[in-house]
Amino acid sequence: MAHDAVGGGEHTGHAGMGHGAMDMAPAGIPLASGAEDRDGLELDVLHARLGPVLAHWPSGLVLRCTLQGDVIVDAEARLIDAGPSAPNPRISSRHLFVARRCDNAAGLLALAGFDDAASHARRVRDAVLKAGGTAHASRQLYRLRRMVRRSWLLRWSLRRVGPLTERDLARWHLPEHLRGDVRDRLLSMLDRAAQGLAQADGQSTHDQPAVLIEAVADLVRGWDLAAARLIVASLDLEALTADREVSRV
């Protein structure tokens, strides 16, 4: 449950922060300490954890965030239970690839509050995973891409969030398809799903390149919680296959 992860993270996040006297810890929760925020005001610092289990979140990823208000001033990422996931023999890797892209797009759209498109993306995912649903799925996917591309309100909401230039990509060894802002990445996610669907079954699918876990922490630093959630969702990570997102440090 998302609630449990959230509630637990909030309270246990304080544990281990030495505040000395217990009388400054009403109900057993130590008070927050202050620090200067990005506008030069002194603001309380809260340590909270995002993940490992949270709705529309790559499961297994844990972000330990230092929050001031709802701005993430510092973050540290790690993976729990990293290990090989058992491949599902009944579903081809190509279909899994497409389904994962659709699922990630659904998560991103849900975080952006575009519920209709999110439901649509989930239906495409289900159609892909169902045997013999490819033709139906590609029609649905075409409609979804048109819906997402045409929504000017979605463009307004996602543009200029988490921009990645060529230099940023090189710095964090990120794959080429993550260039641009969150909206560009959403469109590229759907495009790659369409490409995967159009390929013949025998053809080898490109393996999703690994994304550095440290990069995730760097990318969300300085953004507020809502934007940070959008940025993480737009990185199109593989959920539950923690072995793919390697740490090179």
Partner: peptide, 12 residues
């Protein structure tokens, strides 16, 4: 809440 610098829900 903003200017007092303490979490006042918790600290009576």
């Amino acid at each position: 809440v903003m200017f007092m610098g303490m979490n006042p829900a918790l600290m009576p």
